[in-house]
């Protein structure tokens, strides 16, 4: 057994959230630059230039690239040979969120009761925490602060097995089409296929924590990712919705076994501020 004080988790959550909010990362920035060069529509090209400039300002000045610094989505993979000491794990995560949003000038965007009072919690807690127990004695933390302009455009559908590959493709395309200019394109599309109702939504979210343009290890799913990216970029939604061939930067699909009667599909959309960061310790 390896002992880890949960204070260390607090510190890392804070550090990762700040870095994710200020620093888009070279991979996404380079893909934005590439897209800008290949964009045919002049208005949309100028939109992409402004997005690139924005992300450079955010990094240079260490300020958030977007005012919607999101709800803090946290994925924890904890080795079963780790003995956590100190305060409760979830409290430690939320403390990291509190410190990041308070000390890092990030926007507090969480309300306590979704329906009746909708009172801002003033520290952006609680986080959405997904914990998985894995082999070994390491801890992996991935943070993916999620803005709601794009979250609101996400959708889930319980398809029939007979709907097949075409049904899945149509649902992905329809979801992106219906979202139109709303989710701040160019977007990254996370898709979950299979499992149960809640599992496929989780898979779609998990797909958005992957490195941009990193394909599924399964060749069939990787092919589907490439095909969907091409199809989405033919929709002529474009950067900011002003038209053009850059509607999505990347499509990520995750899958899981499902029931003989089902084919659940979830599409989780992320804006061009594709923010995530992770650490293993």
């Amino acid at each position: 057994m390896r002992s880890v004080d949960t204070n260390l988790i607090t510190e890392n959550i804070k550090m990762l959230l700040l870095n994710a909010s200020y620093n888009i990362g070279d991979k996404t920035l380079n893909i934005l630059k590439e897209s800008c060069e290949n964009e045919n529509n002049q208005v949309s090209k100028s939109v992409l230039q402004q997005i690139i400039k924005n992300d450079e300002i955010a990094f240079n000045e260490q300020i958030p690239m977007c005012q919607d610094t999101g709800m803090a989505v946290i994925f924890l993979e904890i080795g079963q040979d780790v003995n956590l000491t100190g305060k409760n794990l979830n409290d430690a995560v939320n403390e990291g969120v509190r410190q990041a949003y308070d000390e890092g000038y990030l926007r507090k965007s969480v309300v306590d009761d979704p329906l009746f009072d909708r009172k801002n919690t003033k520290d952006n807690t609680p986080a959405i925490i997904h914990t998985e127990i894995v082999s070994g004695d390491k801890i992996k933390i991935t943070v993916a602060p999620k803005g709601f302009g794009s979250e609101n455009m996400s959708a889930i559908k319980m398809l029939k097995p007979s709907d097949g590959v075409e049904g899945v493709k149509n649902f992905i395309l329809d979801t992106v089409k219906n979202a139109g200019p709303n989710p701040c394109p160019p977007i990254v599309v996370g898709v979950g296929i299979g499992g149960t109702f809640e599992k496929c939504a989780y898979l779609a979210k998990k797909a958005l924590s992957r490195e941009i343009k990193e394909h599924n290890k399964s060749e069939k799913y990787a092919e589907l990712e490439k095909e969907m990216l091409d199809e989405i970029n033919k929709l002529n939604i474009g950067p900011a919705g002003f038209g053009g061939n850059t509607t999505a930067l990347s499509v990520h699909i995750e899958y899981f076994p499902t029931h003989i009667a089902g084919l659940p599909v979830a599409v989780n959309i992320c804006c061009h501020a594709y923010r995530h960061d992770s650490i293993i310790f």
Binding site: A58, I63, P64, Q67, D68, Y105, L106, R107, N182
Partner: peptide, 22 residues
Amino acid sequence: YVGPAPAKPNYVIGPAGPTTSY
């Protein structure tokens, strides 16, 4: 339609882009 982020010291305002209008 905007909910700005908090301003860092010596800034007028924090990042302040548009939110979805619908």
